[in-house]
Amino acid sequence: MSINEKQDQIIDDFSLFDDWMQKYDYIIDLGKKLPIIEQEYKTEDYQIKGCQSRVWLRAYEQDGKVFFKADSDAVITRGIIALLIEVLSGQKADDIANSDLYFIDRIGLKEHLSPTRSNGLTSMIKHMKYYGLGLKKKLENHE
């Protein structure tokens, strides 16, 4: 599935929820299910600092695609990370770098990306795109 197909799928899933509680129950559930990042990557080097919650992000390349693993100490942040990974992990570098993550607004989670929340998510998306951009450059140089 392409990035946008995945986003549309998530928007579809979220349209089933009647109220914020169901939505957050789902996000919390996703957060709890997100595979825990290996301890060796839970270091300062992989940490994206937020004032409120901390985020760890690791990217690796396989067959020209970028894969992400991430974690947070706050479960709601983890849930949103799970959604971002669902959309972006395993996609082509170019597609990640150029992605427009419209699903966040459409499912009503835009508030979590406001700088005042300072939860590390805004930086995380920026980093994910940088990894995409970085890998794209690397592949171009190999051509």
Partner: peptide, 19 residues
């Protein structure tokens, strides 16, 4: 985590500080 509590309390109309 304090952040998670703060988010849910916000949804319930309750303004507290977290962090």
């Amino acid at each position: 985590h304090p952040y998670d509590l703060g988010i849910i309390l916000d949804k319930l109309g309750i303004a507290v500080r977290t962090g």
